[in-house]
Structures are given as structure tokens and as C-alpha cells.
Design a protein around this nucleic acid. Sequence first.
DNA 1: ATTACTAGGGAGCGAGTAT
DNA 2: TATACTCGCTCCCTAGTAA
Lengths: 226, 226
Amino acid sequence: MNLRLARTYLVDLYKLGAGEKYIKVPTSELAAFFGVSQQSASRILQELFEMELIDKRNVDRTLWVRLTDKGLAEVDDYIRYINDAYERPGRFFFRGVVVTGLGEGAYYMSRKGYVIQFERLLGFTPYPGTLNLKLNEPYYVYQNRLLRKLRGLHIKGFRTKERVFGDVRAFRALIQSKIEGAVIYAERSIYGFDMLEVIAPVYLRDALKLRDGDVVEVEVYINESR
Amino acid sequence: MNLRLARTYLVDLYKLGAGEKYIKVPTSELAAFFGVSQQSASRILQELFEMELIDKRNVDRTLWVRLTDKGLAEVDDYIRYINDAYERPGRFFFRGVVVTGLGEGAYYMSRKGYVIQFERLLGFTPYPGTLNLKLNEPYYVYQNRLLRKLRGLHIKGFRTKERVFGDVRAFRALIQSKIEGAVIYAERSIYGFDMLEVIAPVYLRDALKLRDGDVVEVEVYINESR
DNA sequence: ATTACTAGGGAGCGAGTAT
DNA sequence: TATACTCGCTCCCTAGTAA
């Protein structure tokens, strides 16, 4: 069973109380609650068990079911995602810690081939440098992974005599609820999903009085970037 | 596509902003976001459209997608259900208005065949009468439908010389956060899913000073009834 | 009364590809 | 670039039924 479907059944089991303790539930009853046949309820429990999302015990032909820690984590993530979707449609929210990058941001952000496109697509001349935010919370890392799957604004790569500069994608963003900038994803980024690269028309460390270790909140707009 | 799966895709589309306005989204981008192939994303959109959950327009080979009112309602219900599951695992919450029934509750609740079983299963002698609560909010009607699919305590029917008394199922409940009683479902109830029948060891109208039209809150326990 | 196996049909999936 | 068709394969569903 795919995870998308599994999560919905986990929520139903959670509703029945299987998140806190073992519950006694005949598959026929579960079937009615799930809206499937008794046989499917039985199979679904088996598959959730194989995915290690639930624990399942059969004592004298009565089933006892409880979510595992992995199952509980799955429910937590799912509920968080869904509420986030409801509260922030069209937007992604991140909270990260200011860290010092490798300094290559300044180099890239001052290449004329990029600057011209940023000006045209974002409407501002980016300060030559990026603010690197380390995402410590797993949920934000997951969200970063998700956001990166979207296209955003497409900044085309180019080549000079010396080397090749890859494509970059950008999403408009509001940093600390104050400054409008953007989040960028370099096609060949040296960072993983736990790092968020932010640009703005100003030097953010000065404008927002930031030092390494400070917590920064970023709201990214999915659609206004088109 | 079944509704269970459809709802999860609707939430994803909502996250992308399709709940508020038409969003421009290539199926390939949607595919990455959904975690499926481009072809599946295309098919999923078609099916959601056929289910009238989204509106979909193809202008010059670019897709514009937006949730319909029906789709939005589906997302609302789903999110409400999920948060409810998280906040009230193992419990169902209802809010209803006191109405006067047809008086048959008193008749049934005083049949010895029922009373003995209630005493044994619930641990109290029910006051001979039921409090009827009319559920005006659709969500509570939906929840009532769901709860009724569960088994709860099984009070067996019986027959006298005159007639047959059907099975009844009961769930322990807390009324107005004060009095412990139960919600009962008569096998052959004359009421639909918009009515909740409540019993208790005391006359609830006196004990809680209730009159027709008063709002009453009931918390039903799924598992403690076993 | 249970749970869960098997079998058959149908729904869902992605690769290839037409447009 | 797009979207979305066909095709073959897999997964998922329910009915029947064994244990």
C-alpha cells in the first residue's frame, strides 16, 4: 500500500483510539468504519503491520491494534501538513538558523548573467550574497524538499569563457515579515534539503541585524512567482 | 477514484493555492508534488474533474486548476475530521438541541428486559426516558453516522407475548461535562442520523435544568464501553 | 461468532508516444 | 515545450469460503 493511502487509514485508527493504547476491533467493525469490506480491512491491517506502522495481535480470534511510534510520527506529520495546507495555502513557511556559507553566494549573485534575469523576474537587484538558513526541524526539511519540486521562476544558466553556470529557480519570499526577497535553488547546489538560500535587494544581515545562530522566519510564495 | 484518495489530492491542490484561485500548474510539476508520474497526475486531475471536485481549463496547452465549492467543502470536512481525530482520539463530540421526542423512549427504557442489561453493562439503572438531541450541524450528523457503524455495548433484544423488542447498542458518554450516561442506538430507530438519544441514571432535564431548545454537549467514549 | 486465504475483476500505475 | 491517449502490468477490491 502506498503511504498516501496508509496515512488516511492511520488517522482513522487514531480516531478509534489506537494511538494511545491497544484497541480491540473486529475487522468487520473496522471495515464499516473504513468504508471497505471486511476482507479489505483485514488486508489493510496486514499491510500497515508490514510497513511497521501498527502493531497487531491476534488473541483468541480477537484483534488488538495499536499504532507504532513510526505510525504515530506519520500521523503527526500528516496532520501538521494538512493544517499547514489549510492555514497557508499557496505559501510555505520556514524557520531556520543563520549560518555562514562558503562565500560562494556572493560570487554567483554578482554574475551579470544572473543579475539581469533576477532584475527582470523579481523586480529588484539582488544584494551580492545569500543568507544561508539551516533548517533544524525535520518538518521544514521535508517542506524544503517539497518546495524544491515546484518550478518557480526560471533563471537560465549561461557559460563564460571560464566555466558553466547552471540554472537557478527562485520563489518570492517575505523574510522576518519585513523584507521582500526570494528563496533560490541552484540546479547544482552544494547544499542539501536542510539549507535554505535567501536573497534580497539589501544586505539582510545588516537590515535585520542578524548574526550567526539567530532564528529567521521566511514565508515563501508559490504562485506570485509566475 | 475513491473519495478517500481524492481528498488527499484535494488537500495537495489546496496547498498549492487552488482553493482560492485558478492556479497554473503543468501536470509534470503536479506529478512531482503528488509523488506520481506525469501521466497519473493528468489522469487524477481528469477524475477529480469528473467528480466535480475541481474545475480545470486547458488554455493553449497550459492547465488552470481550481477547487469547486464541492471540492472546498470536501477539504473542509476532511480537515475538520482529521483535527477532531487528533484532539479527541477514542471520543466523539456532539452538540445538539433539546427536543421533545414521541414519548416512546420512556416506554422502552422501562422494559425490564432492557433495564437489566443496561444495569449490567453500564453499571447504572437508567432513568425511564431518553433525552433527544437534534443535531443541526451537518458535521455532527456525519459523525453520528460514523459512530453508529461501531458496535459499542450490545443490549440484546427480546420478545414478550405482545411484541418484539429489537437490539440496542450503547456507548458511554459524558453529558454537559457533568453527568455520566450513554448514547443509545435502537436497531429499529424511528429517528435518522440527525437525532442523538441520550440516557442517564437521572432525569437529565431536571438535573441539568434543560428545556426544549437548549444546547447540550455530549462526549461519547468509543472504547470504554467494552 | 472470528480472521484471513484464494480467485477474479477492476482500478491505478508508468512507459511510450501522438498531438 | 505542453496534455493525455493506449497498453501492459501491478495493486486493490470484494465475494466466497476455510479454519
